[in-house]
């Protein structure tokens, strides 16, 4: 299940594309997996069906999903493409975090230190769960 999170400032369409990309990159929708129908996905995300349709068409343009005439839409089986997408997302997330840390006045060494410290604490939490 995709945990749709649509905010009220940016175009819904853009947010749907981003969140679908995230879902494919993280494997919520696996390679070759069949997607639910447009209406079902729209209802799940609580958005207009035409907007969901537009977002899925945009994903078709990039090759991330493809439509088979009678049987619906499927996630690409091209693992290279999915890995590239995942890499781009990881870089973008990391980039955002690094810029925030710099804005806070942290230098490279501090950023590394906080990163390690927090990651170890998070890993510890995960183990407890």
């Amino acid at each position: 299940m995709v945990e749709w999170q649509i905010d009220n400032d940016r175009p819904v369409y853009t947010q749907l594309v981003e969140q679908m990309e995230r879902a494919v990159a993280s494997g919520v929708f696996g390679p070759g997996q069949r997607l639910p129908g447009v209406r079902e996905m729209a209802a799940e995300a609580g958005v207009n069906p035409n907007t969901m349709q537009r977002a899925l068409q945009a994903l078709e343009q990039t090759g991330l999903v493809h439509a088979k005439r009678t049987s619906g839409r499927f996630v690409t089986e091209d693992r290279e493409l999915i890995l590239t997408l995942r890499k781009r997302q990881a870089e973008s997330l990391t980039g955002r975090w690094v810029r925030d840390m710099r804005a806070l006045g942290c230098d490279g060494e501090e950023i590394d230190r906080y990163y390690r410290q927090v990651r170890e604490a998070e890993d510890g939490n995960d183990l407890k769960v």
């Binding site: 009220n8 400032d9 819904v12 207009n48 907007t51």
Partner: peptide, 30 residues
Amino acid sequence: KVLDEAIFLSGGQVALQMGVDELREERGMG
């Protein structure tokens, strides 16, 4: 989120009729 279009009425006339996403794009707000 469920709308295609927003129709603003003002003073008994349509002040604006526009796609919601186009509006968000253009104004940078909902």
